[in-house]
Design a protein around this nucleic acid. Sequence first.
RNA 1: GCCAAGAUAGCGAAGUGGUCAAACGCACCUCUCUGUAAAAGAGGAGCCGUAAGGCUUCGGGGGUUCGAAUCCCUCUCUUGGCA
Length: 318
Amino acid sequence: MKKLLIICGPTATGKTGLGLKLAKRFNGEIISVDSRQIYQGMDIATGKDIKNGKWTNDHWELEGIPIWLLDIILPNQEFSVAYYTDLAWKAIRDIWDREKLPILVGGTGFYIKAVLENIPSQGIPPNWLLRKKLEKKSVKALFGELIKFDSCRAKQMNVSDRQNKRRLIRAIEIAKWLLKNPLPEKQKLPTAETIFIGLKTSLEKLYQIIDQRIEEHLKMGAKKEVKELLKKGFSWELPSMSAMGYQEWQPFLEGKSEIQEVLARWKFNEHAYARRQMTWFRKNKKINWFDISCKGWENKVENKIIIWYNKNKDAKKN
RNA sequence: GCCAAGAUAGCGAAGUGGUCAAACGCACCUCUCUGUAAAAGAGGAGCCGUAAGGCUUCGGGGGUUCGAAUCCCUCUCUUGGCA
């Protein structure tokens, strides 16, 4: 069976570094799973580790290791999990064809899930007109509407999601689509032998690392990067510009706040993000967790992978 | 040294006799997750307890009152104004 390695965990835990190391050791290539690093021109604040890399044709190469799905679109282009999954599978297949090990590296949990599990509504496209219309309604009205079209789905939604406009709208969008179209055919995903490696540490420690990294990103010219994006005509309303390290600059650049506030907000947002990532990943019981503040964690990871990596070979021999 | 204003939970800031363990914002913590996911949304939060409930809070101390963050006295500190 083909193998697929996944490295996940909250931001700033050194996933890329580990990915590179393992790629060298196990003849692998990296596929980035990051919903913001897909954008061209958003390098510093998104933490794209490509300073010493070089762009070749359609992908980055760092220390001789190809990294896929970075810089694939412009900040004003439409994107979604669905696009991502298609691209990711294309990359995975290519890597397999080259008889190498694909390594998914990233912190966007939803993307990882979509790649591996096949989300039922994938294939039902957005209906922007409908969305715009529904946007004006209250959550209550939207929920009422959803009951009309798909009471079953409505009942499934929990308290949180029933208050969530965006999700209600998508649910209605799906329900309406299904009135006229059949459920999209399930993409048959190739079966792969996967292993999940999760990197984590205490929140306290994580906040320290995050803060440090943000200071570095500031020195590297995060502000300039934002200005350049604006100069190119990318506006604050774009989903891409809601990324951390970008949106925080808006009040500052409009003269409404000090740089200290920008930094504080940026840090707080990343802390909250890291927490959210953890609550997402915690649910995935397949993840083998490693605490990066424990000495020797990298060797432990490597040992774990060696066993997993060689399983196949032994089977062949027998 | 005098006068004035103030001192409220981690920070900012409401409340000015009972419905206040104390609004709201931020930080913090937990959670949700079927095409925006670094998005969007729900909840928690003094202490002890799974809970019911109990115990201790509004600068310190002392009073008034059935009852005080809220009224009075005093002390300490902060900030403005005058010397």
